[in-house]
Each structure stands twice: as C-alpha cells, then as structure tokens.
Design a protein around this nucleic acid. Structure first.
Lengths: 372, 372
DNA sequence: GTTAGCACTCGGCGTCGAAGAGTGCTAACA
DNA sequence: TGTTAGCACTCTTCGACGCCGAGTGCTAAC
C-alpha cells in the first residue's frame, strides 16, 4: 500500500490539481499550481509532471489548450491515498450551521428512522449536497419488539408493530363487524406471543393456523388480522427512503443544464433506485465512496456517492448517503457523515479520539494542507 | 355575470390567444389567430381588437414588435368566463396514463392520508405538473376514533391514536421502568375513555389529573404517557404535506433558468409554506384557482395553483393542489382534479352527471372548441 | 366596419475577430 | 540530468456586427 507508482512530487501535484478543481471547477493549469505557496517548481516542470499524470490516466484534458481535470482514476487515488482526513476529522459545525437541527437530533427520542431522517437533513445542510436516508434494513433482519391489534370501530382495527430501532409500522384492518374488542384482544395477545422477539424474515403466513387454534377463533375471522400484520411486515421490509435537499443539486454548475438536472431529479424520486444505490454500498459498517461510473445507475455517471451505515449492537438501523457531483468536497462530506455518525450512535464527540473511517489508509503525505 | 365589458368577438379572440399561448408558450400574433378555422377576420381586424384587449389589460406585449401574451387579468377572465369546462369534464384517463396507480387508488383501503397521497401522484402524472397533497385538517377538527398505549419493553411504550379518515399517529414514550404492562393497560383504558370521540382541539393538558385519579396511578407516572398522547395530537394538528413530481417543474421552459428552478424547488421543500399555500385555498369545498400573484408566496408569482378539497360527511380530510406555471393547461388540471375527487369520495364516475365545480359559471360562449 | 399595403421595430442567430489562457517543445542553465 | 525560460501554437470565450423574419401600427381604399 505504501509502494505505488507515484513519487512524492507527483502526489503533491495531483492533490493540488484535484483540490483546486474541487474548489473552482475549472481546468487547472500549470501556472496556477506553481503559484501555490507550497509548490516550489516552475510552471514548465509542473507541465511535465502533469503530462506524465495524464499519460498514467490520473488527469485528462478537456481540450488541447486547457488545463487538466481529474479523471475518475484520479479521484479514486485522491480519496484512497491523498485525502488527509485529519484535516477535517475534528470538524465541528458552527452553531449557525447547525441551527435548530442539532437540538432536534439530540432531543429526539422517538423512532430511529426519524432520527436518521433528521440527521440526513443535517448532513445535507452541512455539505450543501443532496442527502439520502434509508432507515430499516432491506433484509428482514430486524426483530419485532411489540405487536398489538387496536380496535378502532366496529369492523375496523389497527395492527401496530414496533421494531428494533423503535420504528413503528401500522396497517388499517377491515374485518367482520361481528368481531368484538374482546375477541380482538385475544387474537392480539396470541399474535404478540407468537411473533414478538422474532425477526421480520422469520414470520410466515402459515402461522395463521396457530393463531386460530390457540385463540379459539375461527380461521376466517383471524385471517384479515394476520393479513394486516403481514402488511405491517411488508412495510417493515421495504426500507424507508427519504431524500433531502434535492434542490441543492441545482446549485452546482455541472447541473446548470436543465435537462441534466431534470434527469437527476427524476432519479432522486425513484425510491427503488435510490434504495439500491445506497444499500449496495452499505455492506461494510464504515464509510464507502463510489466515484462516477463506479455506481451502477445510469445517469449518475457524473455523480459520486458517499455513504455511512449506522448500527447499534450489530444491527444495521440505517444508512445516510450523500449524492453530489464527482467534483465534490470529499473531505467535508466525510467529516459531516462522521460527525453525524457519532451523534447517532451516541458517542460523545469529545471522548475517545475518533477512529478514522475505514475507507482509507493514509499514505505518508504530510504536507497536504487544505486550501482556503 | 352575463353582461361584461367584452363583446363576443373580443371574447373569442381572447380565448384563442390564451389557448394558443398555453399550447405554444410563444407570443401570439394576429396572423396566427386569423388563420384559425373558426376565425373569419383578417389579421388587421384582429390587430385592432388585440390592441383594444391590451388597453383593457387582458393582454400584454413583451416588446413592441412581438405578439401578445395574456396578463393575469386575462387568465382570470379566461378561467372565470371562457373556460369551457365541458370540453374536458368527461375526461377519462387512458389506461396507459393510469398505469398501476388507478388500481392502487381503488384497492387502497388504508389511511385516507395514504389515498390522498396516491391520488396526488396520479394528478401529477395526469397533468404533468407538480402536485401537493395535504392530509388532515390544519385546525384540530378531526375526532379521535381510538387511542391505545402499547407496551414495548420495560421503560418504553408507544402511544397510538386513530383519527377520522383513519389516519394514524404514534409516538414513542420513555417511562419509568417500574411501570408494568398492567398499569399501562389501566392508563390506556382511562385515556381512551376520556379522549376517544373528542375532537383533537378539545383535548387539554389538565386531563392528566382526571387520568391519574381515575386510574389510581400517581400523577408523575401518568405524566409521560399523557405527554406521548399529546405528541400524537401535535402531529395530528400539523397537516401532512406531500409533494409529488417536483422534477416536472423543470420540464416547463419558463423554468429553464436554473436559478428560477432552484428557487421554486426550495419553496416546494418548505412544508410550512406549501401547507399555507394549499390550506389558504381550501376554504370552499370545490375547486379554487389562484393565478400568479393572487397567491401570496413571493417567488410563486409566475405560478398558478389549482386546489381541490375533499370532504366526507362534512369533515375535511385533505386537499390536493396542482402547482404549475401561470401558463398552465387549466382545463386539463381541473378535469384531473375532478376525476380524482370522484374517485376519492367514492362517487362512480358513470353515475350522476358530474356537477360542474363551483369556480365558474359558464358564459354563453358555445363555440370555443379546444384546439388539438 | 373591414381589409390591404407598407414602413418600422426589435429579438434571434450566425459570422468574425480579438483576447486570453494554457500547452508542448526547444534550448539554455546549474 | 533535472529544471527553467522562451516561444509558437491551439483552442475557447466573448463582444460586435449585420441580416432575417415576425409582428406591429397606421393609412387609405373598399
């Protein structure tokens, strides 16, 4: 991991180019790099190095007489090897940046899914990119903590289940008017006994028999109730997708073309695609970065995705992703997600020295200091 | 209402101009109007009439040598007097337009708020404009149909309330670990007796005393539970706002300026503003049209809003609004909302001849036939 | 009251050329 | 051998210019 094909000077130049490009979104020329205070070579030297970097595939040129811009390979090397996460890992949002959201995250004691949604809003604001939150796990690995049937009116009841992470699902049940509240209570108690404590994926339809037998209520009457419970379970299995700050996409000049912007916004509305996009990355527990065409969704080739998955006691409770242009401020995004991770998992940000997220093992570049 | 300042020819010309402008979004000239099959005057005559209409404030000219475009006054006259709603009122979406959504609306037996949301999606697709759905009424006029406290785990419970329209609100409660399920049941039963059947607005905090007394549980222990119920009620009072098809805004050329589009999208994300916007119009039970600056939100001056409010047995359950450019296809939007109204309120669209929505009393223009 | 004709206005669009930024190459230098 | 100054070349950006067409208002004739 330490030995790679770039010598120290090339690394510094590559990092300088990418930093500059991320900031200004303009092809960066040799002169610009040369003028940086930490760069003591003439434009001509830089030019030679940049030509090399282009040949190696880290940089490209939009046209002959323009500066260089990073290629996907360049970005990948940047986030893997050059990104000085320590630059930003101590990142603490200002009071202004947090505004009321901080309080809401802290004081929120409700469902985990709510907290993740609120956190996603925070991330979007901190980074100025679009953020996508997924709560619950797509596989049915969450356990059911509680289950109850609530009588509403004759012929109508409500099935309620509470899952790990305190997320709540409910479903309105239409049933025979002859079923009284007492019968419902009996069924409810039976279902609760049978289902509570089990994982969502373990529940199967033939449990209807057991409920019917144990409660002494005819199968036909129990049916709609179990149906309602299954409806809840279906809802629990389809992860909640929440998109925050879609409008921020329009702020970035790479999407000033309305057609492009429209395409992106339409994709953002496709909950299924977004769920896939984010879930695909959530295998590991840490941060994952997908650059440009590394993510499989067509139309997102000019975008990067950074995701962070949050688990408590080994149970995945949600994932927050940031979606932005390939030319995104990776350090800031990583820092924001890391900050939020500490909040969500209850770690005090002042306690232990924060672990570096797994995406990267730092090479020994020491002098990469962020500009601005 | 029959006598107004425009003679028949002026009306026809005005309608023709607006119809054409709605379709092509280009200033329409006298020649264009003159060429229409139902218009038997020379361009010069039309020009004179158009000059009159401009003087009266119904039309404007972007610049000296361009055609005319409708002013807000012109649109207002159009929707009030010229719109031949019968053109479209028999509107029935094609199978393709409905796709799977129709089925979902029909078969949906769950919460009213879900059905309104789904209907809103349908409206957005049918019209190709952005649609905003509000479920529940902003005032607390809905009654509580059922209420229950569900024990989740030691120290944690869930408050659930079901409102008219079957919308469900819940809130996780943190409570003293010493409270067992039986105590909770007692409190739950008491709360249910006290609150069920009442309007949300009637519930007040001092009911905590009654609950405490009647259940024989100390005030301090009852407190968090009642708090949870109040949390539900708070949620019930703030109407659920759901925006659908925001990306469709970008399809309309008047928003091809990214700055404008961004402004609009940001407004769309402001749930409070959208709630106001839609609620403001929902006084009456029928359709309401707000043109351009008639709606008070700054930044929506170039937009129009059409809303339809849905009530069952006199209880307002939700409102669906369509937000689009001032130059919107009013007949289509009105027809789509009307179609959905019939669906949501359970009317069979083939039964009674559909009532015309209240917005308009037709003037006796008979020959206005839509083009294309 | 309606229409044909005509001069006039004004935005849209393509062309052209200057300006500027950046490159690659060569030759000189340490 | 690595670095740097100089220079010719390339390519985009941007404003100026001018033509074209659509549409108007006015006048005069029907």
């Amino acid at each position: 991991m330490v030995t790679d094909e770039l010598d120290d000077r090339k690394k510094r130049i590559l990092k300088a180019v990418i930093d500059d490009y991320i900031e200004n979104r303009e092809p960066v020329g040799s002169r610009t790099i040369s003028k940086r205070s930490d760069m003591s070579f003439s434009p001509a030297t830089i030019r030679n190095e940049m030509a090399d970097l282009e040949e190696m595939g880290y940089l490209t040129q939009p046209h002959t007489s323009a500066g260089r811009i990073p290629s996907e390979k360049g970005y990948r090397y940047y986030v893997d090897q050059l990104l000085d996460l320590k630059e930003r890992i101590g990142f603490e949002p200002t009071a202004e940046e947090l505004s009321d959201v901080k309080l809401r995250v802290q004081r929120e004691i409700g469902e985990m899914s709510d907290r993740i949604r609120v956190a996603s809003e925070l991330v979007s604001r901190l980074t100025d990119y679009t953020s996508i939150a997924i709560s619950g796990s797509a596989d049915g690995s969450l356990r059911i903590k509680a289950l109850q049937i609530v009588p509403v009116e004759p012929g109508k009841a409500l099935a309620v289940i509470v899952l790990e992470g305190d997320s709540v699902k409910n479903s309105v049940i239409q049933l025979d008017k002859s079923i009284g509240p007492e019968t419902l209570m009996k069924i409810s108690a039976q279902c609760s006994m049978l289902f509570a404590g089990h994982r969502v994926e373990e529940i199967s339809l033939n449990m209807i028999e057991s409920v019917s037998e144990a409660s002494g209520v005819p199968r036909a009457l129990v049916m709609p109730v179990v149906d309602g419970i299954f409806d809840c379970i279906r809802k629990a299995e389809s992860p909640g997708v929440h998109t925050e700050g879609a409008a921020r996409f329009l702020a970035h000049p790479e999407f000033s073309d309305v057609e492009k912007a429209k395409g992106i916004l339409e994709l953002l509305n496709r909950e299924d695609l977004m769920a896939d996009l984010i879930t695909e990355c959530s295998g590991s527990d840490g941060l994952v970065i997908r650059i440009g065409s590394e993510n499989k969704i067509e139309g997102l080739n000019e975008c990067s995705v950074v995701t962070a998955t949050y688990s408590v006691n080994g149970v995945k409770l949600g994932t927050i992703g940031v979606l932005g242009p390939t030319r995104m401020d990776y350090p800031r995004v990583v820092a924001a997600l890391e900050y939020v991770r500490r909040r969500l998992t209850g770690e005090n940000e002042l306690a232990a020295p924060p672990e570096l997220p797994q995406i990267t093992e730092m090479s020994e570049v020491k002098d990469g200091r962020g500009n601005s």
